[in-house]
C-alpha cells in the first residue's frame, strides 16, 4: 500500500513540476509553492478573471498519509499573518474546507492537482462571500486535522 503511496505521489509531483515549467500546460492560477517531501505540499491558488475573489491569493496546504491515494489527503487553506482563507460558505475561518471530494466522494483516481482545480472552481463559482453557518462554533472545537471532522454535505449549489 505504501508502495503505491510513494510511487503515486512522486509521479504526481514530477508531473506538476513539468507542468509548472511550461506555461502552456500550467493550470492558470495554481502554483506549487513547496513540496519538500511526500508528506506536505503547499500551493497558491487564485481565481483568474472576474470573480468575487479577484486579486486575492490563497495558500492551500495538502497533507498526505501513507494510505494515499486510497484515502484523501487532508486539505485546508493556510491561515497566517500573511495569507488568509477565502470568505466562502464552505470555508471556515480556520482554513478547513467542506467539500465532498475530500470526504465521501474521494476516489483514488483523483489527484492533488484535481483537488486544487476543484477548489479553485469552487471559489470561481461563488455567488456571495459569506462564512459557513456555525463558523464560530466549528472553529472553536475543530480538530487540527480537518479529516477528523465529519462534514455533512447538503449544498450542491456552490
Amino acid at each position: 500500500m505504501s508502495v503505491v503511496y510513494s510511487r503515486r505521489l512522486k509521479k504526481e509531483l514530477q508531473e506538476i513540476q513539468i507542468e509548472q515549467a511550461d506555461p502552456t500546460k500550467r493550470a492558470a492560477g495554481i502554483q506549487l509553492l513547496q513540496a519538500d517531501d511526500l508528506k506536505i505540499w503547499f500551493f497558491s491558488i487564485e481565481v483568474l478573471g472576474e470573480s468575487l475573489y479577484k486579486n486575492e491569493v490563497f495558500h492551500l496546504m495538502v497533507r498526505f498519509d501513507p494510505e494515499y491515494p486510497f484515502k484523501s489527503p487532508a486539505v485546508q487553506f493556510v491561515v497566517s499573518d500573511k495569507v488568509k482563507p477565502p470568505v466562502h460558505p464552505h470555508v471556515y475561518t480556520n482554513g478547513h474546507i467542506c467539500a465532498s471530494i475530500l470526504g465521501d466522494d474521494w476516489s483514488p483516481t483523483l489527484s492533488v492537482m484535481a483537488i486544487c482545480i476543484t477548489i479553485q472552481s469552487m471559489l470561481a463559482s461563488c455567488k456571495k462571500k459569506e462564512l459557513p453557518e456555525g463558523n464560530d462554533d466549528y472553529v472553536r472545537t475543530a480538530p487540527d486535522n480537518p479529516k477528523k471532522t465529519r462534514f455533512v454535505y447538503h449544498d450542491d449549489t456552490v
Binding site: P89, H90, Y92, H96, I97, C98, A99, S100, I101, L102, G103, D105, T118, I119, S121, M122, A124, S125, P132, E133, G134, N135, Y138, T141, A142, P143, K148, T149, R150, F151, V152, Y153, H154, D155, D156, T157, V158
Partner: peptide, 12 residues
C-alpha cells in the same frame, strides 16, 4: 458541479 459540500460539520 465543481464541489458539493457545505457548512455543517459534525462534531470533531
Amino acid at each position: 458541479g465543481p464541489a458539493s459540500g457545505s457548512g455543517s460539520p459534525g462534531p470533531p
